[in-house]
């Protein structure tokens, strides 16, 4: 399930949904990304997430399809929020089920690493020194290339 939405999501509900549908799987791994309240420009009050409608959904679907080719997975859920979010709010959810934990751990990390490098979303942070666009991190590229 791929969802891009401005609304918040309920981690517990998402976990329950994965658990109800994962049949014979023995592992569920979930990751939740939050809005940090700091950056090297100062204290972050809000971020605005822009996305490319149409391509963002397609990109997330392709990333999940690639994960399914690498690992035997049951359920895969990716939720990415857009619009204005306050510090400490939830941004992104990745949930993966598999027969064994290693596949679930690796697939969740793979999906996040690919999302951060390929999926068309852009963050603008508002700090006590004003707004600025977030630059892509070299460490995200390194994480992407390890796969």
């Amino acid at each position: 399930m791929i969802v891009i939405q401005p609304e918040d999501f309920d981690h517990g509900e998402q976990y329950k949904r994965l658990r109800a549908r994962c049949d014979s799987d023995g592992a569920i791994v979930t990751f939740t990304g939050l809005v940090r309240d700091f950056c090297h420009h100062g204290r972050v009050s809000t971020i605005t997430l822009e996305h490319y409608p149409g391509m963002a959904e397609k990109s997330l679907m392709q990333i999940c399809a690639q994960a399914r080719k690498r690992w035997e997975l049951g359920e895969v859920t990716v939720i990415h929020r857009v619009g204005e979010l306050s510090a400490h709010e939830q941004i992104v959810f990745v949930g993966v089920t598999s027969k064994h934990r290693q596949a679930a751990f690796e697939a969740a990390e793979f999906i996040m690493d690919y999302l951060k490098t390929l999926a068309p979303f852009w963050k603008k942070e508002t700090t006590n020194h004003g707004p600025h666009w977030v630059d892509a991190k070299a460490s995200d590229q390194v994480a992407f290339e390890k796969w």
């Binding site: 996305h51 951060k116 999926a119 068309p120 979303f121 852009w122």
Partner: peptide, 10 residues
């Protein structure tokens, strides 16, 4: 066609 800077989601 879309032009954009490196992505920074997640």
């Amino acid at each position: 066609i879309a032009f954009f800077p490196p992505v920074t989601g997640g």
